[in-house]
């Protein structure tokens, strides 16, 4: 009769293996924390020095003290704002289509394409916007950039919207339909409001993602060290992300410091939006679930 105490032959090695693998799993978890902490701390240390009045009000100077990123801040707001205006309605409606009308072969195709689109490199989407708009309108513009960003947002918003709407229990739909409310009113007045916090979360996460995008903007807005063009359909523009790339590659340490300042501001915006998205979702969750 073997005892449950002590270690019989062979068990010590198994137990050791268990300990080793458990420790490795802990180390992997730590491996996720180290780079994030390192990046954030480094960006703050390097970027804080750049934050002064001129950083927010001036324009980039490739010589001297580096200037500021006013045009990039404005450009980010304009271009991301435009992209949101275009991308959100399309993405949400496509999501509604998939959730409410998409249980057929065409829906499957759309779903598959949306999934595949999220895996397309952003620079390829930039090429599309370049070919479609820059080539056809004859120049770089904020509009071309925001189209590229909108295209990046759409599949993300579509899939999250679909998944959230699918979580709305059928009983809620049936209750409304049973009262004689038509299907489209049920969707817009009952289903979508029920899923709203989830949809907003999906939108915010998509906005956060594209606010940090750089590659497609190189091909569509080009970047500038001057005030951005007032006409969104014509003339180069710039964003914080693009400025980090262009100023960060300059030889002058003062200019690079401005790039760090821009990086800190961008990280703040992007992570802030992501955290806000989480908070909204946790605060409300999908009602009725």
């Amino acid at each position: 009769m073997s005892s449950i105490h002590g270690n019989p032959s062979g068990y010590g090695r198994r137990k050791l293996m268990d300990r080793v693998m458990t420790t490795l799993a802990y180390l992997c978890a730590a491996a996720a924390i180290i780079p994030l902490t390192w990046i954030i701390v480094y960006v703050v240390i390097k970027g804080l020095g750049a934050w002064d009045a001129e950083f927010f009000t001036g324009l980039p100077q490739l010589f001297g003290d580096g200037g500021g990123v006013r045009n990039g801040i404005v450009g980010t707001l304009v271009i991301v704002g435009l992209a949101t205006l275009m991308g959100v309605p399309i993405g949400v409606m496509a999501g509604i289509y998939l959730a409410e009308y998409g249980n057929n072969r065409f829906g499957t195709v759309v779903r598959f394409l949306a999934d595949t689109m999220t895996g397309i490199p952003s620079i390829v989407v930039g090429i599309f916007a370049f070919g479609l708009i820059v080539v056809n309108t004859g120049g770089f513009s904020a509009f071309a950039g925001s189209v590229a960003l909108a295209l990046l947002m759409i599949p993300v918003i579509t899939r999250t919207t679909e998944e959230i709407i699918r979580l709305v229990p059928d009983s809620i739909r049936e209750a409304s339909l049973g009262l004689g409310v038509s299907r489209w009113k049920t969707i817009l007045r009952v289903v979508v409001p029920t899923a709203l916090s989830g949809i907003v979360t999906g939108v915010l996460l998509a906005v956060a993602r594209v606010a940090g995008e750089t590659a497609p903007l190189i091909l569509t807005i080009l970047g500038t060290n001057f005030p951005i063009s007032a006409n969104i359909f014509d003339g180069p523009s710039t964003t914080l992300s693009l400025q980090i790339y262009q100023l960060g590659a300059q030889p002058s340490p003062e200019v690079v410091e401005v790039a760090w300042g821009a990086a800190m501001l961008l990280v703040l915006i992007v992570l802030g939006t992501s955290i806000l998205a989480r908070v909204i979702f946790r605060g409300q969750s999908v009602r009725g679930r």
Binding site: L113, V124, L132, W184
Partner: peptide, 29 residues
């Protein structure tokens, strides 16, 4: 209801169009 469903379908179609557009532009350019 039919109109709404049609509109929703158009947006679904939009996703297909974007995908087609990307391939077309890459090929063209």
């Amino acid at each position: 209801d039919t109109v709404f469903a049609g509109v929703a379908l158009l947006f679904g179609l939009f996703i297909v169009l974007i995908m087609g557009g990307i391939i077309y532009q890459l090929w063209l350019q």
